[in-house]
């Protein structure tokens, strides 16, 4: 696999077993991956092939049974829970299929939640940054609107703004357009793509949408817990499992 030197996130030989005893499943079988700054990677594959499991391990929400994860050239697999939480807060941004906003909070308050945990900005600075981020995703006029009163597309854009709140190096998205119509899907993806390119971030998204996958810089096809093929836009390079 051809990668440039500016690696934001990488993993090597990730193995993960889910369930116990008879129901034990070998969900990931030696997955390796590298995400460089300014690139968009899509993970595709049938349901149950291990896409989301890989995403949660890379997002430090789940642990690998073997293998290691590096973020910004620092190995993080061995870190304790509090340290992992800090890494998630500082370096990672998550976008989920069902956007997962706090319904009782306004759009602006949702965006400010990661900033509050980081505790670097003052209240005024947080208000200013969250307003700027929401403005960037086209929601500058709906800052104070409770998130439950926003449309699906708007909620997903709030989720994008929230993922960018702490200026993370890596954005991980689990079917970010899965709950949107095609027009909104395209708009949301283009927004993410623009942010990644402009701000030199790395984006890994899990998707079932072939149009979106084809628009990514890299596509990784997964099957039975392995990346069976990775190719850049316009090129096809087969990769053996565990390679």
């Amino acid at each position: 696999m051809l990668m440039n030197a500016e690696v934001s996130l990488s993993c090597e030989g990730i193995e993960r077993f889910l369930g116990e005893d008879d129901s034990r499943v070998h969900a990931l079988r030696g997955v390796s991956l590298q995400l460089e700054r300014g690139t968009v990677h899509a993970v595709v594959g049938p349901s149950g092939c291990g896409k989301s499991t890989l995403l949660y391990i890379l997002g430090l929400l789940d642990h690998a049974d073997s293998g290691w994860v590096t973020i910004e050239n620092e190995a993080v697999s061995h870190l304790v829970d509090d340290a992992l939480a800090r890494k998630r807060n500082e370096l990672l941004g998550f976008i989920f299929q069902f956007h997962f906003l706090l319904e009782d909070f306004t759009a602006q308050e949702n965006v400010m939640i990661p900033m509050r945990r980081l505790a670097v900005l003052s209240e005024e600075q947080m208000l200013e940054r969250s307003a700027h981020l929401l403005d960037a995703v086209g929601l500058g006029s709906k800052l104070k609107r409770p998130s439950r009163h926003l449309s699906g597309g708007e909620q997903q854009r709030v989720a994008v703004a929230r993922a960018l709140a702490n200026n993370p190096s890596v954005i991980l998205a689990d079917e970010p357009t899965g709950n949107l119509d095609s027009a909104n899907s395209r708009r949301a993806f283009e927004l993410l793509q623009r942010i990644v390119q402009e701000e030199r971030k790395a984006l890994l998204l899990v998707t079932h949408n072939p149009e979106i996958a084809e628009a990514c810089d890299w596509i990784h096809e997964m099957q039975d817990g392995r990346i069976v093929e990775s190719h850049s836009r316009g090129h096809r390079i087969s990769v053996r499992a565990g390679a």
Binding site: G59, L61, D81, D82, A85, R86, K87, R88, N89, E90, L92, F94, F96, F100, L101, L102, I113, P114, R117, L118, R162, N166
Partner: peptide, 16 residues
């Protein structure tokens, strides 16, 4: 439960 999972994903610690 959903909100707790969201907060955890955004870097909130278990003790938070």
């Amino acid at each position: 439960i959903k909100e707790i999972a969201i907060l955890r994903s955004m870097g909130y610690r278990a003790r938070d």
